[in-house]
């Protein structure tokens, strides 16, 4: 008996009228995979850095994320403490091992910081973004010890730190950045593109925040 794999592939080839060994077809596929050419890239993200940041901010706020700008990395802990205080949230914070977060002086705040992935009992978490895409105000986070994926989804309030220099205009620039970091064709286990806090419109089409993921998404942009 032939395997399901062989049957599916040979059915496809029979329908297409090909053998799978045609050199031009193979070359077309190899070339497309190797070149990874961008297609139509929206003009809206093609901006200088200041305008790109402004677009990112406008797009993120349009999807109910909140956003603050910290002049430098050392101002981030105070901004996060302020955000939690202003929203009457407990002064707790879960984070991964990201060296950029680890280098910040959390001791200067009253925040009770714990480290590691989430098992579901953390109200607040902070992650460091890999990049941002200004065209839709989208955060891009990658999995790993530095920023465990569970922090993106289990806590009620997710705070994400993003360097202004890591804001790209479009998704294609993010792919380029991923390839530069991880290698062509290679990916971290998870790349999470996050555009606003969790929501559902499943009951009478009424848009409600906080379906299964975070109810709030707060973005802290680091200037330098």
């Amino acid at each position: 008996m032939t395997s399901a794999r062989d049957d599916v592939l040979s059915n496809i080839r029979r329908s297409l009228g090909v053998t799978g060994h045609e050199a031009p077809r193979i070359a077309a596929v190899d070339e497309r995979l190797a070149r990874a050419a961008p297609g139509v890239v929206p003009a809206r993200g093609q901006l200088d850095p200041a305008a790109r940041l402004a677009l990112f901010r406008a797009q993120a706020e349009a999807v109910q994320a909140s956003l603050a700008v910290a002049a430098s990395a050392k101002d981030v802990p105070a901004e996060i403490a302020r955000y939690l205080r202003d929203n009457n949230l407990p002064a707790t914070l879960r984070m991964g091992a990201d060296p950029r977060l680890a280098a910040m002086d959390w001791g200067a705040t009253t925040l009770a910081v714990t480290r590691g992935p989430s098992a579901g009992d953390d109200l607040n978490a902070v992650s460091h973004a890999f990049a941002g895409a200004a065209e839709t105000g989208t955060l891009v986070l990658v999995s790993g010890t530095d920023n465990p994926t569970t922090l993106n989804f289990l806590p009620d309030n997710h705070i994400v730190v993003l360097r202004a220099a890591d804001i790209d205009g479009d998704y294609e620039s993010v792919w380029t950045r991923l390839r530069a970091t991880f290698g062509k064709g290679l990916m971290p286990r998870a790349v999470n593109m996050i555009t606003g806090p969790s929501r559902s419109g499943d009951i009478e089409q009424k848009l409600l925040l906080g379906a299964h993921g975070p109810r709030r998404l707060h973005i802290v942009i680091v200037g330098d």
């Binding site: 991964g96 992935p117 839709t136 999995s143 010890t145 286990r189 998870a190 593109m193």
Partner: peptide, 21 residues
Amino acid sequence: QDMSVYTTLSTGPRRASDPDG
């Protein structure tokens, strides 16, 4: 929507150093 809230790219299982997944 311009973009759905969560667009997730998954590649393989948890890596040796991953704390979750």
